[in-house]
Write a protein that binds this DNA or RNA. Structure first.
Length: 637
RNA sequence: GCCCACGUAGCUCAGAAGGUGGAGCACUUGCAUGGUAAGCAAGAGGUCACCGGUUCAAAUCCGGUCGUGGGCUCCA
């Protein structure tokens, strides 16, 4: 019998006979461990308890708490759901059913239209299956056997999947009761570990994510080992919903989106305060770093968009109009406008880099189903900038932009991750140019020691890009900042500078944003702060609340004094009780409430109540003013 | 754009097996002048998203359009 060596996390080595199961190894390490283990990471590969180990390996047990454990758990849950659906709705065809971030889904193809009541039925069936404790069996077939098996069952999606698998690999299957699925695994050994089940929603999804394919029905769900953990997760979802920027936007009177303008947001006075502060912050930081600001027209002649390549690559997303008999387009991007400014004169190599910022209003026709509050709109202002630089300046300029973005995000306390998008199918220019540009971005990131994910084929049509992804309240990430390196537009528009040798040469262009769009960034900010904006951003910084309207005179004096210091202050002089006024100010997330009554009037004081700290007691008016002014100036978080 | 669900007062929602619409909050007025998260009372406010069909009668049933939500696709 052949023996293999298994190295445990503590460094100790054990010997077993070849073909031993993950379960038996785990059991041998510790009986107790086998009860909580869901699988193991063996030589870096996650395996289920039923799988066999055949070579010398490092071996680490995984539990539900581990990322790999959740993946196993939810993947099996997807199969349990599939079996439940098969039991309840015979004739359903199965597509794919993976584990995702917080649960799993499975895509089904059936004439039956799933309705919410079905979810309850399926849920009940899943619980039954889990309780009856099926074991999940793994076996392999040859490619031909596998194809034959699914063709007989008319499982067209599985056949499609197998046909796209590499020719020489063995094909693994997992069998759960009467449900046998093509699957790489790994899976739970037995279903009884699944103690809490919740199906969350029904959605449409195209087969293989391609809109030309048939739309399947997807059911999303999640499961847990303990009922308590499921409840906790559902509570978290509820809490997150409370900070949805669309709800807070209305409650705090920041913005609305009306039926008359789907995807075209209306900014209310309080929303504009935040927006204007963000713009001032943006202008200050850019001015410090050698940027100048320009503004270019929203409507420009269609010929410009032919020249830029937008007509060929972006027409579907553009709006058009006519002026007299001429065709015009509403700009979907700011770059061509910026380039026209550049072209209006001659440049020496000494003038470069030229850095021009533009808070540019663009319009893009997004699909109606894609619109989402402020996060996805059809009209938005990009905090754009275009840099015209010498090829030798690429790395330094890229690094400076990365630093600027990092600094600006840090002011808000944002976490983000970076993605690098490479050449799309529909690209302009040559493959060599793309390679140089992509490597430029990679080098800048690597020099900064920043980790990034690569999105193959997701670049803009004119160049590769780095994206900064920020998270919203429920963990969805949104692209905000972007840096794009472009060799195409300079050529298309034949822009140049005069080099030392008196030759005209082509500058390199960088397109970049930090906020991304003012709209999206505000949406993210609202959710990030749950409406509790720090004092420097808060639309109303101080609310003065007289105990009764007898003290309104003092309150008005106080208001003028604060206003004189540039503080955004409101006065609630209504004949209401103090508790009522506090409640309203609190619901409006106003950072400071100043309560004034008989005692304060007598000694020129204010009683300070802070949004998240409650009553701070009495304070001298001047002291309060200097405290808050300092907080504003330092952009205290 | 596609799949599913939804659209009743400014907001949150109830109601309607077809017979001329309801609550709470918000708003207006009156009373109460109250010390750290909702004082009392009265009033005003809706062509039940829009268009069409069925019917003696439609907010309710049917069809379409628009919009919203969750996904897919796409993206700042």
């Amino acid at each position: 019998m052949k023996m293999i060596k298994i190295t445990l996390p503590d460094g100790s080595v054990r010997e077993y006979s070849k073909g031993i199961s993950v379960y038996d190894i785990t059991k041998d390490i510790s009986e107790g461990l086998a009860r909580v283990a869901l699988g193991a990471v063996v030589n870096g590969k996650t395996m289920g308890m039923q799988e066999e180990v055949n070579e010398d390996s490092t071996f680490k047990v995984v539990k539900f708490e581990d990322k790999e454990g959740k993946e196993i758990f939810w993947h099996t849950s997807a199969h349990i759901m599939a079996l439940a659906v098969q039991n309840l709705f015979p004739g359903v065809k199965f597509a794919i059913g993976p584990a995702i971030d917080n649960g799993f889904y499975y895509d089904f193809d059936t004439e039956h239209r799933f309705v919410p009541e079905d979810l309850e039925k399926i849920e009940a069936e899943m619980k039954k299956i889990a309780k009856e404790n099926y074991t999940v069996e793994r076996f392999v077939m040859s490619r031909d056997e596998a194809l034959d098996y699914f063709k007989k069952k008319d499982e067209i999606y599985k056949v499609d999947l197998i046909e796209n698998l590499p020719e020489d690999e063995e094909i693994s299957f997992y069998k759960l009761g009467e449900f046998t699925d093509l699957c790489a695994g790994p899976h739970l050994y037995e279903t009884k570990k699944v103690k809490a089940v919740k199906l969350l929603s029904i959605a449409g999804a195209y087969w293989r994510g391609d809109e030309n394919n048939k739309m399947l029905q997807r059911i999303y769900g999640t499961t847990y080992e303990k009922k308590k953990d499921l409840e906790e997760y559902l509570n978290r979802l509820e809490e997150a919903k409370k900070r949805d920027h669309r709800k807070l936007g209305r409650e705090l009177d920041l913005f609305t989106i009306q039926e008359e303008g789907p995807g075209f947001p209306f900014f209310h006075p309080k929303g504009m305060i935040i927006r204007n502060i963000l713009e001032s912050f943006w202008r200050e930081e850019h001015a410090k770093r050698g940027y100048d600001e320009i503004k270019t027209p929203i409507i420009l002649n269609e010929s410009l968009w032919h020249q830029s390549g937008h007509w060929d690559h972006y027409k579907e997303n553009m709006y058009f109009t006519k002026i007299d008999e001429e065709d015009y387009a509403i700009k979907p991007m700011n770059c061509p406008g910026s380039i026209l400014v550049y072209k209006s004169k001659m440049y020496s190599y000494r003038d470069l880099p030229v850095r021009w910022g533009e808070l540019g209003l663009v319009h893009r026709h997004e699909l109606s189903g894609a619109l989402h509050g402020l996060m996805r709109v059809r009209s938005f202002t990009q905090d754009d900038a275009h840099l015209y630089i010498l090829p030798s300046q690429i790395k330094k300029e890229l690094i400076d932009i990365i630093d600027l973005a990092d600094y600006m995000y840090s002011i808000f306390g944002f976490k983000y991750h970076i993605e690098l998008s490479t050449r799309p199918e529909d690209f302009m220019g040559t493959e060599e140019q793309w390679e140089v540009a992509t490597n430029g971005l990679k080098e800048a990131l690597e020099e900064k020691g920043i980790k990034y994910i690569i999105n193959e084929g997701d670049g803009a049509f004119y160049g590769p890009k780095i994206d900064f992804q920020l998270e919203d309240a429920i963990g969805r990430t949104w692209q905000c900042g972007t840096i794009q390196l472009d060799f195409q537009m300079p050529e298309r528009f034949d822009i140049s500078y005069v080099d030392k040798d008196n030759e005209k040469k082509r500058p390199v262009m960088i397109h970049r944003t930090i906020f991304g769009s003012m709209e999206r960034f505000m949406g993210i900010l609202i959710e990030h702060y749950a409406g509790k904006f720090p004092v420097w951003l808060a639309p109303v910084q101080v609310s003065i609340l007289p105990i009764s309207d007898k003290f309104n005179d003092y309150a008005y004096e106080l208001k003028d004094k604060l206003k004189g210091k540039g503080i955004r202050v409101e006065l609630d002089g209504r004949a209401e009780k103090i508790g009522y006024k506090i409640r309203e100010a609190q619901l409006q997330r106003i950072p400071y409430m100043l309560i004034v009554g008989e005692k304060e009037v007598a000694d020129n004081l204010v009683s300070v109540r802070k949004r998240d700290h409650g009553d701070l007691g009495q304070m001298n008016v001047e002291d309060f003013i200097s405290t808050i002014v300092e907080e504003i100036e330092n952009k205290v978080k």
